Computed example of a mutant assay.
Amino acid sequence: MGSLVQSAASASDRRRSGARLWASPRSRGLAALALVVALAPLGLVNDYLYDIAILVGLNAIVCVGLNLLIGYAGQISLGHAGFFGLGAYGSALLCAHYGVPPLAALALATAAVSLLAFAVGRPILRLKGHYLAMATLGMGVIVSIVLANEDRVTGGPDGMPVPPLTVFGHALQGEQAWYWLVGACLIVVVWLALNLIDSPAGRALRALHGSEVAAEVVGIDSARRKLEVFVLSAVFAALAGGLTAFYSGFVTPAKASFLHSVELVTMVVFGGMASTFGAVVGAAVLTILPQALTVVKEYEMVVLGAVMMATMIFFPRGAVPTIEAWLRRRRP
Score class of each variant (00 low, 15 high):
I323A: 14
L289K: 01
S211M: 13
L196V: 14
V141Y: 11
V62N: 04
P161A: 10
L304R: 00
Y179H: 07
A306W: 00
P332C: 04
V213I: 11
Y72R: 13
T311M: 15
K226G: 15
L33M: 12
G74S: 09
L264I: 15
Q6S: 10
S24P: 03
I323R: 03
F314I: 07
G2H: 10
S275E: 07
L115I: 06
W22Y: 08
A148H: 09
R328C: 11
D47S: 15
F83K: 00
E216H: 11
V167A: 02
L35G: 13
S248L: 12
G29V: 10
P163Y: 07
S10T: 04
T154R: 07
G57N: 12
P321N: 04
V120C: 14
S211F: 14
L116T: 06
Y299V: 01
V100C: 04
A40D: 11
P164A: 14
T166F: 09
Y98P: 06
R224T: 11
V162K: 01
P316I: 01
G174D: 13
F258E: 00
G282E: 02
A319C: 10
D151R: 11
V153R: 07
S233H: 07
Q176I: 15
K297M: 03
L30M: 13
A254F: 04
S114C: 13
L243W: 11
P316V: 08
A283E: 01
E150I: 10
G155E: 09
A177I: 12
T287Q: 01
T136A: 06
L208V: 05
V285T: 14
W180K: 06
V295Y: 06
V45H: 15
L293D: 00
V303H: 00
F84H: 02
T287F: 10
G138C: 10
H260W: 12
R317P: 08
V268F: 05
P290W: 05
A9V: 13
E298I: 00
Q6L: 12
V262F: 09
G87I: 03
R224W: 11
G85L: 05
W22M: 12
A107F: 12
A237I: 04
S91Y: 02
